[in-house]
Write a protein that binds this DNA or RNA. Structure first.
Length: 851
RNA sequence: GCCCGCGUGGUGAAAUGGUAGACACAGGGGACUUAAAAUCCCCAGGCUGGCAACAGCCGUGCCGGUUCGAGCCCGGCCGCGGGCACCA
């Protein structure tokens, strides 16, 4: 008997699939289509176990759907723009384009041996001018449709390198290279009007029934719809033009507990007061640090009393101070609030720090109006007693009180109910080279002018250098020079490039016809859209998936997608991450340095580098390029074959959960596949006319396996499908049935395994006389009659504890079951004569005796 | 700080509110072998008692609740992870 040698059989069958063109996606109106897509990778140059897990999941779905008769689209591409290419150019020299395309070639070479059922003829990279030129065309259409505009927005500014930093490049408030303290600085930037779609993007979440509930919840919270009151304070002592201060509050019921008003450092009133050097100094202090919400919200809360006062809307004699506070965001509401310290943790902290009054508005139902030592913030659905209410009942919930307060304000004309959203417009400007150029020009006479479509693509120049920080497009000697599309005068090209999230917001649509000379082609988009199953990491739950939902709407509005595709992903599955230890040392300046697993030598005493340096181990963290805790699957494929790697990543852990990569178990997978191989060979050698025993049992087991494995795959429970395949393998192994029954069982085992281990499946399929290629064979259907058992074993509980069991015909009436249960020896023993108070019989499930 | 998850044997895990630990890994015992590897067979949550078959009790991060019955539902904690708009 020959050995299981994956290196031979895998290459053989991959060639056979290629020659038969089995994975080519064909628009076939006669068949239902199925579009399965995994989130495309960033071309880092090396695939890791996370990729293998992600693509194998998609491949299992694609191969199963193909066998079930669908016309399948399963493409692959590269999310190829982004910072790492520029960083590589800065660190090692070379060019981002060469680095990126080199990485793509390397990664493709590593992916091919996995035997994925991908239509490689549709491959694309977002850095191909063929791709980003179409993206520029859509930008122009969106500009014409009023979905694009410019405004000032803050960026992280490194004052030493004189460059904009990504949040990732700001470490503890300092630039990662210069170590300079980062500041927030305003620049004019390009934006997409995603906030116009806030209400629609929120409402449409309800229709995404095949998305994980947690993702829908995260998106809903991100969009952040709130109902509140907007009103204006009359100001006292404010500069000219600021006699009113508009504020927005979600808690108008706490108006009588107001003790101050606060404005953002970016508020127009704050800017107007900046003539005062003290105010200017305070605002400068607020601008220190990065732009990330995490940094802003965890920063110490500081404030400055402007001296301006406002009149309380319900009592003009009551004046409140106006403070500038660093935690008020200009982007949300009106950039101004009133603070009610008694019922808000942040306001409480602020009031305590600056000695502002803290007056309760409501107390616990039946409680007393006493001084607070901590903020009182019950659920809004809880009934409380309003001691300083002004609208609605004395005892009511906050929800009721808020509605009453809005009604009161509208009736008395001092404010109005407003629905607000937290979602901000999407800033797409990046002051970087390696991205899609924004196709507009700046003309001295015409201003900002969109490029003409016939001039697209606006290609990135190749002759750039990364020897100094900043955007090479900005200092390129000639690239910026162009003529104004409107007046023909000399003009300047926009040097900002697009956020890479734009690239990934429509690649799924481009895959429906990746070579077209328009962004999409109507017939292809109509046939292939939507993506039936999208698979990717939970880390994309908010930004990528929300931007894509917006972009699909924008594409529909500009005529690039049909109406049915405005929600582009019918079903979403978020796989868990592959985690791994991180290996860290520290450089001479005390900065962390990370090391690849293969650079680290692990012993029982600890971990060291080859030169003996001790390595700190940080357990179980997300695999990331920057932390270098990635595992190279190529070694596993070389040693054990792709089928082993594929089977291993699908077994054991449920696909939605994180899995900690460990080398242990891969060998066990290989041994299991070898056993299947040997079992297949043994059956092939059985005499054709061998009459065995238990034919009927094995046939039934085969049908049960078909049923259970299919359920496992269709329910995204690949680990359970594999457990059932283990059981079925053991059953065949132990069986001594007649040759044709054994051969059928092993052939069905091969077909059921084929989504996970397609090469081994082909080999077994061919050996046992399967017709054609296994990959083209129809998915088997279980005969329901073969799945029925005529008897069932019921556990008997006494007071919820299992005390015995009975086996009864499946259809037995509950009354009969009761009698049998009470006559059971164990039951009689445990009851010991006690009276039965209640008897619960759940047919086919359980009997519970209550005494 | 805010939003969202997750937590079950030595390990990965399974379990429409109904027999907790299927299926595997690591481990132990045995067969085969001069020996080892490979292969095959068997055992296996913890504690207590028993030579044993077995019996009893405990057990799903912690505390409380709902229920005839809770790993699963509800409330409150603890720990770990993801996201927080310029990482992709």
């Amino acid at each position: 008997m020959s050995r299981y040698e994956p290196a031979q059989i895998e290459a053989k069958w991959q060639k056979a699939w290629d020659e038969a063109g089995v994975f080519k996606a064909v628009r076939d109106p006669a068949r239902p289509k199925y579009y399965v897509l995994e989130m495309f990778p960033y071309p880092s140059g090396r695939i890791h176990m996370g990729h293998v897990r992600n693509y194998t999941m998609g491949d299992v779905v694609a191969r199963t759907k193909k066998a079930q008769g669908y016309s399948v689209l399963h493409p692959m591409g590269w999310d190829a723009f982004g910072m790492p290419a520029e960083n590589a150019a800065m660190e090692r020299g070379g060019h981002p384009r060469d680095w990126t395309y080199g990485n793509i070639a390397d990664m493709k070479m590593q992916m091919k041996p996995l035997g994925l059922s991908i239509d490689w003829s549709r491959e694309l990279a977002t850095c191909d001018p063929e791709y980003y030129g179409q993206q520029q065309a859509m930008f122009l259409d969106m500009y014409a449709a009023g979905l694009v505009y410019r405004k000032a927005a803050v960026v992280n500014w490194d004052p030493v390198d004189m460059t904009v930093l990504a949040n990732e490049q700001v470490i503890d408030g300092r630039g990662w290279r210069s170590n300079a303290l980062v500041e927030r600085r305003e620049l004019t930037q390009w934006f997409f009007r995603i906030s116009d779609y806030s209400a629609e993007l929120l409402a449409a979440l309800d229709g995404l029934t095949e998305w994980p509930e947690k993702v829908r919840l995260m998106q809903a919270n991100w969009i952040g719809q709130s109902r509140g009151l907007q009103f204006a304070f009359q100001t006292v002592g404010a500069p000219a033009g600021f006699d009113r201060l508009e504020v927005y509050t979600t808690r108008p019921d706490t108006l009588m507990g107001a003790s101050f008003a606060a404005i953002s450092p970016d508020h127009p009133l704050a800017k107007a007061l900046e003539t005062d050097p003290e105010v200017a100094a305070f605002i400068a202090l607020c601008r220190k640090g990065g732009t990330s919400a995490e940094e802003i919200e965890t920063a110490e809360k500081i404030g400055f009393d402007t001296g301006v006062r406002v009149r309380h809307p319900l009592d003009p004699a009551w004046e409140l101070p106006v403070w500038i506070a660093n935690f008020i965001l200009m982007d949300y509401g009106t950039g101004a609030i009133f603070g009610c310290p008694a019922h808000d943790a942040r306001d409480f902290e602020f009031a305590t720090k600056y000695d502002l009054p803290i007056r309760p508005v409501f107390v616990a139902e039946g409680g007393t109006d006493a001084a607070l030592t901590e903020p009182f913030v019950p659920m809004k659905s809880e009934r409380v007693t309003y001691v300083r209410g002004f609208a609605g009942a004395t005892v009511q919930t906050a929800d009721e009180a808020i509605a009453a307060a809005i009604a009161h304000a509208e009736a008395h004309g001092y404010g109005r109910g407003v629905t607000n959203y937290r979602l901000r417009d999407w800033g797409i400007s990046r002051q970087r080279y390696w991205g899609c150029p924004i196709p507009v020009v700046h003309c001295a006479t015409c201003g900002v002018v969109p490029e003409k479509k016939e001039n697209l693509p606006i290609e990135l120049p190749y002759d750039v250098k990364f020897d100094v920080p900043g955007n090479p497009l900005d200092r390129h000697p000639t690239w910026r020079n162009c003529t104004c599309p409107a007046c023909g005068a000399p003009a300047r090209r926009e040097t900002d490039t697009m956020d890479t999230f734009v690239d990934s917001s429509w690649y799924f649509a481009r895959f429906t016809n990746p070579r077209a000379s328009t962004p999409t082609v109507a017939e292809d988009a109509a046939y292939w859209m939507n993506v039936d199953q999208y698979i990717g990491g939970i880390e994309h739950a908010i930004l990528h998936l929300l931007y894509s939902r917006f972009f699909a709407r924008a594409m529909h509005k500009t005529g690039h997608l049909p109406a049915k595709a405005i929600e582009p992903f019918n079903a979403l599955f978020t796989q868990g991450m592959v985690t791994h230890e991180i290996y860290k040392t520290t450089d001479a300046n005390g900065r962390p340095v990370y090391h690849l697993p293969e650079e680290v030598i692990r012993t029982e005493a600890g971990a060291r580098l080859k030169d003996g340096t001790a390595v700190e181990i940080i357990p179980s963290a997300k695999m990331s390029k920057s932390k270098k805790n990635v595992v190279d699957p190529m070694n596993i494929i070389a040693a054990f074959g792709a089928d082993t790697a594929r089977w291993f990543v699908m077994s054991d852990s449920p696909p939605e959960r994180d899995v900690e990569w460990t080398a242990a178990g891969v060998e066990a997978t290989f041994r299991h596949l070898s056993r299947v191989w040997a079992l297949s060979a043994r059956i092939a050698e059985m005499p054709r006319d061998f009459k065995g025993q238990g034919d009927d049992d094995l046939v039934r087991a085969t049908h049960r396996a078909i049923h259970e494995v299919t359920q496992g795959i269709e329910g995204f429970a690949f680990n359970k499908a594999i457990a059932k395949l283990h059981e079925f393998t053991n059953t065949i192994h132990r069986a001594a049935a007649s040759t044709p029954v054994m051969a059928l069982a092993i052939r069905m085992l091969a077909k059921l395994m084929s989504p996970m281990t397609p090469h081994l499946a082909e080999e077994i399929w061919a050996l046992h006389g399967g017709e054609g290629l296994c990959v083209n064979a129809a998915w088997p259907k279980a005969d329901p009659a073969m799945l029925e058992d005529d008897s069932v074993t019921l556990p008997i509980q006494i007071n919820g504890k299992r005390r015995g069991e009975i086996t009864v015909p499946k259809a037995m009436a509950a009354a009969e079951v009761e009698k049998l249960a009470l006559a059971n020896e164990d039951v009689i023993k445990f009851l010991a004569g006690q009276t039965v108070r209640k008897l619960i019989v759940v047919p086919g499930r359980i009997v519970n005796v209550v005494v």
